[in-house]
Nucleic acid binder design. Structure first.
Length: 307
DNA sequence: TCCACTATCACTTTTGAAGCGC
DNA sequence: AGCGCTTCAAAAGTGATAGTGG
C-alpha cells in the first residue's frame, strides 16, 4: 500500500474527533492520538486560491499538497479568481490520481460542459440538490483495508462574483465561510474491495443559504465559487489514519439563488430528468385553484397546448 | 431603480402503500 | 401467510416567474 501515512493530531485530529461524534459519522471506532505531527505552519497558501478561515480546511489544504500532488487538474485559476480553462480533449471520465488511488468521475463530460459555461448551483432555504451530483468510482485502494469516504465543499476562490456581460466577473472579496460538517458516505466504513465494486454517489447532498445542522446539507454564500473535495480515510490501526484528498476541479460552481446564464439553464433542463417538463415549449393553462387537491386539479384541468 | 431572494406554480419522477393473484 | 407484480396517489424533485425588500 502506497498511501502516505498521517499521524493525526492537532487541528485535524480535533476535526476528526468532532466529526466522529456527529450524526453523519455513525462509526465509533475512530480513535485519535494525542501526538501532533501536522501543523498549520506547513501550509503553503500561496500555491492556491482556496484560502479559508477554517482551521480544519487549512490543515486539509496543507495535507492535500503532500498527499495528492499528482492530481491531473485541467483548470487553473487566475490571480483574480476566475478560472482559466485548459480543457483539451473530451473524456468519458477523468482520473484524479493520488499515490496509487485513482478517482474516476462519472458523467465527467457533463461536468465539463457545465464548467465551460460556468456551472451554477441553485441554493435555497430548505436545501437544493446538486445537479449534476457527484458520482465516482475508486481504484487502487487496499481491498482489505477499512475506508471512509467523505464529501465536503470548499471555497474555490477568494473573490465573490457578479454576472456581467454574459460572464462571471470577480467583484470583491468573498465573505467568511459558514461552518459546514463534512459528510461521510452512509456506507462508510467499508472495505476497499467493496468501495471499488460500486459507484460511489452523493446524490442526496443539498446546498443551502441558511445555516443548517442537517447531515449532508452545506451552507454556502451566494455568488461565491466552490468546489467539491472527496477525502478517502483509511483506518490503519488503533491510533493511525491515512487521508488522501481529491479536490475535484471539474465540480467548480458558483452558488446562486436563481440562474443567471441561460445556457446553463438550458443544459440543466436538457440533462436533468426532473426538468423534463421544461424541455418543450408549452402554453401552460392555469389550474382551477378552487379544487384543493393538486392531483384532482390535474385530472380535471390538464390541457396541453403546444405552441 | 436595481437585483438578490422567496414563495408559489405547473410540470415530471420517485416512492411506497394497497390490491390482487398465485 | 408469504411472495411478486401492478397500480396509483403522495411526496419530492425541477425551472419559471411574480412579488418583496434592502
Amino acid at each position: 500500500m502506497d498511501l502516505r501515512k498521517l499521524q493525526v493530531g492537532g487541528p485535524f485530529a480535533e476535526y476528526l474527533m468532532k466529526a466522529a461524534t456527529q450524526k453523519s459519522f455513525t462509526r465509533d471506532r475512530v480513535r485519535i492520538p494525542t501526538i501532533s505531527t501536522t501543523s498549520l505552519e506547513s501550509s503553503d497558501k500561496s500555491s492556491s486560491d482556496m484560502g479559508t478561515p477554517s482551521s480544519y480546511l487549512d490543515v486539509c489544504q496543507a495535507y492535500t499538497q503532500c498527499s495528492s500532488s499528482g492530481n491531473s487538474g485541467r483548470h487553473s485559476y487566475e490571480e483574480d479568481g476566475s478560472e482559466k480553462s485548459v480543457l483539451g480533449e473530451t473524456d468519458d471520465c477523468i482520473q484524479q490520481i493520488s499515490g496509487v488511488i485513482v478517482l474516476s468521475l462519472v458523467e465527467a463530460n457533463l461536468w465539463y460542459r457545465f464548467l465551460e459555461l460556468g456551472t451554477e448551483m441553485i441554493i435555497n432555504k430548505s436545501g437544493r440538490r446538486m445537479f449534476p451530483y457527484l458520482q465516482f468510482s475508486l481504484r487502487g485502494v487496499d481491498p482489505v483495508g477499512l475506508y471512509d469516504v467523505i464529501f465536503d465543499i470548499i471555497p474555490a476562490s477568494g473573490k465573490c462574483f457578479k454576472f456581467l456581460n454574459n460572464r462571471w466577473m470577480p467583484v470583491g472579496k468573498k465573505e467568511d465561510e459558514f461552518k459546514n460538517h463534512p459528510f461521510k458516505h452512509p456506507d462508510s466504513p467499508q472495505f476497499g474491495a467493496d468501495w471499488m465494486m460500486q459507484k460511489i454517489s452523493f446524490d442526496k447532498v443539498r446546498l443551502s443559504n441558511k445555516p443548517s445542522t442537517g447531515a449532508g446539507i452545506f451552507t454556502l454564500h451566494t455568488l461565491q465559487k466552490y468546489l467539491v473535495r472527496i477525502s478517502i480515510v483509511k483506518h490503519e490501526g488503533d491510533d493511525e489514519l491515512s487521508v488522501v484528498e481529491f479536490p475535484i476541479r471539474a465540480t467548480t460552481f458558483i452558488a446562486v439563488t436563481a440562474y443567471n446564464n441561460r445556457e446553463v439553464t438550458k443544459l440543466k433542463i436538457n440533462s436533468n430528468p426532473y426538468s423534463k417538463g421544461f424541455r418543450f415549449p408549452v402554453k401552460r393553462v392555469p389550474l382551477d385553484l378552487s379544487i384543493r387537491k393538486p392531483s384532482e386539479r390535474r385530472k380535471n384541468e390538464r390541457i396541453w397546448t403546444f405552441l
